[in-house]
Each structure stands twice: as C-alpha cells, then as structure tokens.
Amino acid sequence: MSVEKLSFEEALARLEEKSARLRSGELPLEESLKLYEECVRYHDICAGFLAEARQKIELYRPGTGETEEFDEA
C-alpha cells in the first residue's frame, strides 16, 4: 500500500513505532537517517489529517431507505 493511501490510524501507528526505534538510538546513523525520513512522511500524513475538520451528519429514512443530510438546527 502506498504511503499516501494510509489511514490516520495506520500512519499514526507507524509514526510512533518508527519514532520509538529512532529514539532508542541503537541503529547505525545511516539507518537512523532513513528512518527519520520515513517518520517525516508519516508525520505529515497525521498532521494533515488533524489539521482540517470534516464531518458528514446524515439521517436515515426508514420509509424510503435513503439517507439525507441531517438538519441540526
């Protein structure tokens, strides 16, 4: 799966896992740099997801079996 298609959940899990490995400081510097680049990509996905609110509120119509936008007023 390409990195861009990752869900927030997957991106966050990978970000935290790879950051922890990076922080452990046990890897050679070269591998750490590669890991760091991956972390930056996952971080951008996560931060991008959280940056913008987007919500669809719908109401189901038991009669017709259709959904429509819910009027919250």
């Binding site: 990076l22 972390c39 931060a47 959280l50």
Partner: peptide, 22 residues
C-alpha cells in the same frame, strides 16, 4: 491528545537527537 501524540514525533523533535548524533 492526538495532536500531542503526533507532535511528540514531529521532525523537529526527532531531528534534535539525530543532529546531536551527527
């Protein structure tokens, strides 16, 4: 909470240690 978790792993945070290692 999520923003905080993501910020813990921001490039700035992660590079701090990496830069000192470099």
């Amino acid at each position: 909470d999520l923003k905080d978790r993501v910020a813990q792993c921001s490039p700035e945070r992660l590079s701090e240690r990496l830069l000192s290692r470099i």
